[in-house]
Design a protein around this nucleic acid. Structure first.
Length: 489
DNA sequence: CTATGCGGGTGTC
DNA sequence: GACACCCGCATAG
């Protein structure tokens, strides 16, 4: 980033997409787009990005959040709505101090099954925290292909913790699959089962952790401890650069077990997209759903983002340790609460410019809206699908993007903003964030102000439940943003 | 099986 | 008409 250049600076605080005035529903989207944004895996807030048409991640309409397709009756614009996150109804603390934050299954059927399962840690029910970040409705993401660019627009601010990212889920599954089929595992499993029958119920489903200790507990629990370093979590997501990611991913046969073969980043910040910077920085590592750390076992290579994180927290004012609250304490007063937000959000929703918002607007978490974290043990409201039916546009056809190269992050296309901007001192991010999201700061941040303390990528032993390991249940200890990777949950 | 997309269809405002 | 959503179907990995 050529600091000093006013334009460039401006570019840093605003994604390219945000610098231009456009709306996903516009009959005519900006043409001759010269600059593109780097892919943002964890977008939050009312943001807009413009990706190159050959950006694989954009082509796949990927998102760290669990987004499901919703019918907006507009074949030109693909609309997706957030499913929220699945947590333990009792909000128990996992053995490693983290909280369960599963990725809701996208498939309705699969989700139903998922919700029937129980917390692998305390056996209590799982609870789906539906997203209500968009005026009481799920946050929505819109994708539209336009000649040479893929336009992305998000509406709403996630008011729930981040679920496990898709990449993490996939990586874990593949790892688990491998492990499950490995002779070593089969042997262990057998042994474990025999042990279980021998000690049956001598301490619950898992006189467990004890046994676990000698059975790779972490593995069994599929706990993915987060890195000690508050990496800009979902920033340098594998999605940002399919190419660099692929190798490690595809060769997952080993990356989960050993230090990731992925190209280590000397400075994660470089990969922190401004788009959600405010957000991501606010909660580095957030929910522990850190695809980055998930893929990087060796945290030593992951510089700390603490600074930036702190910075954001400060700007956000109060620190909300929502993540540590018992789910029952985090009631969400329902739609009524959104009215207020509705007003606040009014004007942000559409066609938001890079208006500047004062940091104060971040007190956002002040209770209401964004930070609601699921209702009381009550059954989560029926999953809502938000479909902001996009006006029918008959411009270009929104069809699958032809396969291009994976030069997603072509430096040439990622000028100032994405690359340089990221190298800037984190100090500037907070503000950038505000601007970009038009003040719609992320609430998710509130769920995680703490950074994981240990990087330990353990594979999950899907399908295995060790039951009543209640040692940590209900403990009010500070919850570390670790993610409990409960395999099939 | 699950993720994704598509699109018909319904109910509400 | 716009929007939220349910549901089934199809395809792909």
């Amino acid at each position: 980033m050529s600091k000093g250049d006013p334009y460039e600076d401006a570019d840093c605080v605003c994604s390219y997409g945000m610098k231009i005035t456009w709306d996903i529903n516009d009959p005519k989207l900006p043409q001759d787009v010269k600059q593109f944004d780097t892919f943002q895996e964890w977008t939050d807030g009312y943001v807009r990005y413009i990706y190159t048409a050959d950006n694989k991640n954009a082509q796949r309409h990927l998102s760290g959040w669990a987004m499901r397709n919703t019918n907006n009756h507009n074949c030109q614009i693909l609309k997706k709505s957030c499913l929220g996150v699945v947590i333990c109804a009792r909000n128990c603390t996992l053995p490693n101090g983290s909280k369960l934050q599963l990725r809701p299954a996208i498939c309705d059927k699969a989700r139903q099954k998922q919700q029937k399962r129980v917390c692998p840690n305390c056996n209590s029910a799982l609870e789906l925290i539906s997203c209500r970040g968009h005026s009481g409705y799920p946050v929505t993401n819109f994708w539209r292909l336009d000649t040479k660019a893929i336009f992305f627009q998000a509406k709403g601010v996630h008011d729930h913790p981040r679920p496990e990212s898709k990449s993490e889920t996939e990586a874990r599954r593949s790892a688990v699959k491998r492990r499950m089929s490995s002779p070593h595992f089969v042997h262990k499993k057998r042994h474990m089962e025999s042990e279980a029958s021998r000690y049956h119920d001598s301490g619950g489903p898992f006189s467990s952790l004890h046994h676990m200790s000698c059975m790779e507990a972490p593995d069994r629990f599929g706990i993915i401890a987060e890195s000690n370093f508050p990496i800009p979590s979902h920033h340098y997501s594998p999605f940002q650069n399919a190419e660099s990611f692929k190798p490690a991913y595809d060769s997952s046969s080993s990356f989960v077990e050993t230090a990731s073969p992925l190209p280590k980043v000397s400075n994660p910040r470089i990969y922190v997209p401004r788009g959600s910077c405010g957000y991501d920085f606010t909660m580095p590592g957030y929910m522990g759903s850190n695809s980055y750390s998930a893929l990087y076992k060796d945290s030593s290579n992951i510089p700390s983002e603490t600074d930036s994180g702190k910075m954001c927290i400060q700007l956000n004012g109060s620190q909300h340790n929502m993540g540590t609250l018992n789910v029952h304490d985090r009631n969400f007063d329902g739609p009524s609460k959104h009215h207020g937000w509705k007003q606040i959000l009014k004007g942000y929703g559409d066609r938001n410019e890079c208006s500047r918002v004062t940091p104060n607007s971040s007190h956002y978490y002040n209770g209401e809206y964004p930070c609601r974290l699921g209702g009381t043990g009550s059954t989560p409201p029926a999953l809502q699908t938000i479909i902001t039916t996009t006006t029918k546009v008959s411009y270009q056809t929104y069809k699958p993007v032809a396969k291009f190269g994976d030069n997603i992050c072509d430096a040439k296309n990622l000028p100032n903003c994405n690359h340089l901007a990221d190298t800037l001192s984190p100090i500037i991010y907070p503000e950038a964030k505000f601007q970009e999201d038009n003040g719609m700061i992320k609430s998710a941040t509130a769920y995680q102000q703490e950074v994981p303390s240990k990087t330990e990528r353990a594979e999950g032993l899907e399908n295995y439940r060790y039951g009543n390991y209640s040692t940590n249940s209900y403990t009010d200890r500070i919850a570390h943003p670790f993610r409990y990777d409960a395999g099939e949950y």
